[in-house]
Design a protein around this nucleic acid. Structure first.
Lengths: 217, 217
DNA sequence: CGGCTACTTGATAAATATCAATTCCTGTGG
DNA sequence: CCACAGGAATTGATATTTATCAAGTAGCCG
């Protein structure tokens, strides 16, 4: 049912906010993000999508998508027709069930993100974001080398994810480097002090276990 | 399958963050909110729940709930055993389907909330929140009298929903009153200038239609 | 190359938080 | 039924965080 894989180059829109008849997309490789725009151009990034994730789950239909999807890196996506998938869900409870699980996980991720936006300081939010992405990317494909891993985010992207300006992101990042906690350079994240980073991130118990055994299924 | 209705008085916990074996709850009447706490007590409210909504959908299982649920007003809830409901979903695709729809709607609401937290000013966020709750409450049970409707939120609650302090909420609220846009008094919201309020809320097209015909189903 | 964007740093401004104090409600216990 | 306690609402003064403006360098894609 999955359509043939298709390559989307880095920094391209996969679909725009408001688009109609958008299929689901299975992410074979690459990093992407979903976002929502305000009329004057302000942008809030809602989620980052990594290999193995499913995009386009949110609303569709007559009103159009509530969010847009862009690639961060070159990505390979397979589209999945909505109605065919719907039929599959109807006929196979195991699939329908797994979908619920995926949606619950997405919701937990977005909730955690909302906590950062509303109640964490810039430092805490950044620590949290990097821990989340480190765990997720290691669990999906990523090869770690020492304490470094690939983290293809630019400062403006981090800013739009955390509700900050890129200038402020730059300053906090250099603070974190000076504090010898972590370093982001050349799209590589190096964790210098996992102890302190974890304390800063301050995620509720259980958050990092969201990608435990069950997520492998 | 739904258990007998049970009354929860105002300002009570229905379940705590981290609780295990929590059932689903159908909200027969009352207003509630779900939230997440940080170790030092900072609180982020994630969603408001109104009659007809379903609570407890997010993660459960061995790790415990990722969020807590409290009542705002006296509320009547029916618990729904998780495993029984699971079986129902498995045997009845229409139900499973509607669940997906509910989860997609919750996701869209939380996304919009995240946009407020990250990219809207305090004024805009508040306009947005009140428009959302006005529309939802009118669609569920609420009786409107003129341009006023019941809105049982305190300033500290609004603050924890929008990532602000209650002091700042107070100031913005009195600004909004002085600007003759809206007024919140005695748990009643009065809309003085719908035109301006809508412009301030600045919600993407389609957001307010999330509770259109289909939501009645 | 050339043009755009990212990154960096400094100076200043705006939004929002913190501290403090007072009044007003409202639910509760005597 | 009243008194009281505790949170809610309000206002002022001040502090902190984060944004805005500005400018220059450095990278990267076409």
């Amino acid at each position: 049912m999955r359509q043939p894989p298709r390559l989307f180059p880095a920094a391209r829109a996969v679909y725009l906010q408001g688009a109609r008849d958008v299929p689901l997309y299975n992410i074979e490789s690459g990093w992407l993000f979903s976002y929502q725009l305000l009329a004057d151009g302000r942008r809030q990034i809602l989620q980052f999508l990594l290999p193995g994730d499913l995009a386009g789950l949110e609303m569709d239909g007559s009103a159009g998508m509530t969010h847009g999807l862009d690639t961060l890196t070159d990505s390979v996506l397979c589209s999945i027709p909505r109605e065919g998938f719907q039929r599959l869900c109807d006929s196979c409870p195991v699939v329908a069930n797994h979908m619920q699980w995926i949606r619950a996980r997405d919701m937990a991720l977005l909730s955690e993100h909302a906590v950062s936006l509303g109640r964490r300081t810039a430092r805490e939010s950044m620590a949290n974001l990097f821990m989340e992405l480190a765990v997720r990317s290691v669990r999906s494909v990523q090869l770690i080398s020492g304490t470094s891993l690939r983290m293809p985010l630019t400062q403006p992207i981090i800013a739009d994810a955390l509700g900050l300006t890129s200038i402020h992101v730059n300053r906090v990042l250099s603070d974190l480097r000076k504090s010898r906690i972590m370093e982001l350079k050349n799209k590589m994240l190096t964790i210098l002090d996992m102890e302190q980073l974890t304390r800063l991130a301050n995620s509720p118990e259980g958050f990092l276990e969201l990608w435990g055994p069950k997520a492998q299924a």
